[in-house]
Design a protein around this nucleic acid. Sequence first.
DNA 1: GAGTGGTCTAGACCACGGT
DNA 2: CCGTGGTCTAGACCACTCC
Lengths: 233, 233
Amino acid sequence: MGQNRKQGYAEIKEIILGRLKDGTWPAETRLPDEITLAGSFGCARATVNRALRELADEGFLSRKRKSGTHVNRIPQRQARFQIPSVRDEIEATRARYRYHLLHREPRQAPAWLRGRIGLADHDQVLHLHCVHYADNEPFQFEDRWINLTAVPSAADESFDQRLPGEWLIERMPYTDVEMTFSATAADLTQAEYLSVNRGQSLFVIERTTWLKDAPVTYARLSHHAGYKLKTGY
Amino acid sequence: MGQNRKQGYAEIKEIILGRLKDGTWPAETRLPDEITLAGSFGCARATVNRALRELADEGFLSRKRKSGTHVNRIPQRQARFQIPSVRDEIEATRARYRYHLLHREPRQAPAWLRGRIGLADHDQVLHLHCVHYADNEPFQFEDRWINLTAVPSAADESFDQRLPGEWLIERMPYTDVEMTFSATAADLTQAEYLSVNRGQSLFVIERTTWLKDAPVTYARLSHHAGYKLKTGY
DNA sequence: GAGTGGTCTAGACCACGGT
DNA sequence: CCGTGGTCTAGACCACTCC
């Protein structure tokens, strides 16, 4: 059974994936245990272990002690996206990046926001509107709310130069993030700042972060239709 | 420097993440090398290696031979989604699921599709339109193209009961997938089948799959605005 | 050339979970 | 109980890449 010597974990992953794709090991199959596989691949158990562990992380296999490694009926399809910062995203296209702060107002948190991210009634927030331009074309409209109870120093920052996203990430650790993607029809504010007509289709990313259950910030990032997010698998 | 004994890789990850978040190791910092860290954590180098490797995979660190391990300026933001089948997604809301096939036509692949997924000029494809309903409200409009060269048996399947997505995944489980998310204005077809007005905002998922570089299928899944894809971190 | 991460090994012990 | 994966170790060699 000994095959070619010197298989690395990456090659072993490829070999196993090949057997999944060509039907050698159809769904529900129980794979040989790690020691057996190590023998047939001519490598150490740890090497097989890493290959199988990564394939399981990627959703192709399920592993359980004692019952072994099984081929998933439907490979778990997890789409993985890299979300770059706007600035990087724009500069990556060789376009010139420009940022403009349009609105900055400390205020009581509105009820919808309190409910959405879990603020107390008395919490003060800082509300910002900004636009990110690529070659002077509006690229993203950012509607951001920062919880001043969690980040009091934001009250002293003008944000007329610093991007709120980058400023926050530099000083505020976070423990949890939630993002949602959706489509929406442009409201008056979005239409004005993105130079589109009201009602036009926009792509929206919403991002909320918390630090140990304390909400830090909620941002709503709107893009022209035509903006596409693509998986980086 | 020896700290508590018996640190596992998961604990080490937590400790290091803690130092990133509390500012002990700010952005751009070069971390001690693996051997030094192993000494201070009281564990083997392989254990530190795994912790650092995973933190780099998750976007917090960058590692390069010789130059060492550095703290990323902005942690790579990654969004991870599980993409459920429409049927599961609808049934999970306790709504009644219904499927309807509207159009089924074998034909030459149009040029835009050939270019998009890489088909030869002579390849035949099967073109399908279907709608997925939740409690009799149209939920998703599916515009799908199946490469009959890669999946000849699709020509013999009527798809009036079987969902194309599920049928395909049963037969061709381990494909490579690319997905994109975007917003669009409803065209006439989408508007009609989703019962919205032309021009209304829709959320679109495009999904292309290949099996060993051979294109298998391209699907364009449109949803009402209001549909949201949500992720954890 | 030399420092650093990338990987592999052979062996060990542990933890979970069927039987 | 006991088979299986989960993890750890100590050591080794290799492959980049900066100097």
